[in-house]
Nucleic acid binder design. Structure first.
Length: 474
RNA sequence: GCUCCCAUCGUCUAGCGGUCUAGGACGGGGCCCUCUCAAGGCUCAAACACGGGUUCGAUUCCCGUUGGGAGCGCCA
């Protein structure tokens, strides 16, 4: 590599491990991943776990598993920010020695007092600089360290999404970068980490946009070039309000539990705040081939569950049979107390149910009649369709079905044809629904011949027989 | 309160001064198909927040209003 080569692209995803992978974080991760993949770069994972109160190993695991489930793979990490505090502190010392930072003795209570006064006077609070020129040494007692900002001057950058952005240094004020207990603060840690990890593109939520001027100042004080920043619009809930844990599904695990396919969720997320012509369906490869920061929107977007459902059904319809059966298995187990095992019948059933449900949960629910030997009859269905008049034709159908020596959609259909011919006033609909109730307990199922075929002769006949007994006497 | 950001159908979006009687998708309505439910096909309704400029011409550029959002910690 020569000096003129552009540096290889390195993006990062830096979640704080708060118990689960949040929807918004997941999309940020996806954008970082897509951008790195698109440009042959690397994605680095860094766990921002300096908040010991909230950070646990389990929650870190949950976040990582969420990424894997979504199909997001990374090249380096996970690194832990908590293990890098020496590097952060070294940077503070450097800043101190170059005069870009100074020690501050102001206490929390003093600060709080001055802040409330300023705000009461209707002014924005920035540090008033009391310790700024005191040139306090390390022996000055309990103290924090503050970054020394220029009095004035634009702290600007060209955001890859928002375009030219920035704020005047006077709006920021001298901010604390090392706490009085000696621990580094977030903004300092982030800048040092991104710098030392060689991150070229910081793609993160737009909630960080207002924090960026401070970080620009930090890069300058550290005598380093800032990376490219790209702030992506926030995902909001219905009504444009903040996503709430109560109202909305906010954790990736929620979607998995609700029977959403990872391909569908990934497709849904990538299209929130980003588009590529009229294309709606994006495979992982297509995302990697076409994702572009310049096409990212600037306004926050609502998460639309209906669109996700549609995408999910689309991917359900495309899933290879074996994968579909495997994906459905745990959901089937939830709707029956019987053991569910893969079988030819199950493989066939799944083909019939593909287009009848939008989630795995829904498809499992629609398939209860197949995996359960005991039928839950819907009372309304029974009283409506199992009436005395249907007794004789149903009996005839039963007998015809019982005589069949080869069991198939075609042979079963011939039995229906025969019964219909025998009973002149009987229409297909009048016969099919009672049979459907007999087989499934309800009024909803795939085509009646297909349902019979997949259920098999023995089970079908037994169920029709049982239904015959449910018909009240005339 | 202060600073910053955002603003096209209900929702996600296309549009980068004339191509806009504003396109696509989800959702909604209707029709067709039909043994139920779906799926599928066809079809309809639905938006440039408002007010000023700039311009021969604004959805597109500028300013303001309104509405939303974010940030203002010895949290991350």
């Amino acid at each position: 590599m020569t000096d003129s080569d552009p540096p290889a692209i390195r993006t990062r995803f830096a979640p704080s491990p708060s118990g689960f992978l949040h929807l918004g974080s997941a999309r940020t991760a996806l954008f970082n991943w897509a951008y790195a993949r698109r440009h042959g770069g690397k994605l680095v994972i860094r766990i921002e776990d300096t908040d010991v109160e909230r950070s646990t190993l389990e929650s870190e695991k949950a976040v990582l598993e969420g990424l894997e489930w979504l199909g997001i793979d990374w090249d380096e990490g996970p690194l832990r920010q908590s293990e890098r505090s020496e590097r952060h502190l070294a940077a503070v010392e450097r800043l101190l020695s170059t005069g870009h930072a100074y020690r501050c003795r102001c206490t929390r209570i003093e600060l709080e007092e001055r802040r409330t006064q300023t705000i009461a006077a209707g002014r924005k609070w920035t540090y008033d600089g009391l310790c700024r020129d005191l040139e306090l040494g390390d022996d000055c007692g309990p103290h924090t360290v503050r970054l020394r900002l220029p009095e004035h001057g634009e702290l600007g950058w060209d955001d890859a999404v928002y375009g030219p952005s920035g704020q005047d240094a006077s709006e920021i004020g001298d901010r604390i970068i090392r706490r009085s207990d000696g621990l580094p603060l977030y903004h300092l840690a982030v800048v040092v980490d991104d710098l030392e990890m060689g991150i070229t593109h910081v793609i993160r939520g737009a909630d960080h946009h207002p924090n960026t001027p401070l970080q620009i100042a930090l890069y300058r004080a550290l005598d380093a070039d800032p990376p490219t920043f790209a702030h992506v619009p926030l995902i909001v809930g219905s009504g444009g309000k903040k996503l709430s844990k109560r109202r909305d599904s906010v954790s990736i695990q929620d979607f998995e539990r609700d029977g959403i396919l990872p391909d569908a969720l990934r497709n849904w997320l990538i299209r929130i705040g980003w588009s590529c012509g009229d294309q709606e369906i994006f495979s992982a490869d297509e995302i990697c081939a076409s994702f572009d920061l310049a096409a990212v929107n600037r306004s926050s977007a609502q998460a639309d569950a209906e669109k996700l459902a549609w995408l999910n059904q689309h991917y359900i319809k495309e899933l290879p049979n074996a994968e579909f059966v495997a994906a459905l298995m745990p959901f089937l187990s939830q709707v029956t107390s019987q053991a569910v095992t893969p079988s030819d019948g199950l493989s066939q059933l799944v083909e019939l149910q593909r287009e009848r449900g939008k989630t795995l949960v829904e498809i499992a629910r629609l398939s209860r009649w197949f995996v359960n030997d005991t039928i839950d009859y819907e009372e309304k269905a029974v009283t409506k369709h199992l009436k005395p008049a249907i007794g004789p034709p149903l009996r005839d159908l039963h007998d015809a079905l019982a005589k069949l020596s080869n069991w198939s959609e075609e042979s079963v259909k011939s039995c229906f044809d025969a019964v219909l011919a025998q009973h002149e006033d009987l229409k297909m609909g009048k016969l099919a629904q009672p049979v459907r109730v007999a087989l499934t307990g309800g009024t909803v199922s795939p085509g009646i011949f297909e349902t019979l075929a997949v259920l098999g002769q023995a089970r079908s006949i037994a169920r029709v027989e049982a239904a015959l007994d449910l018909i009240p006497p005339a």
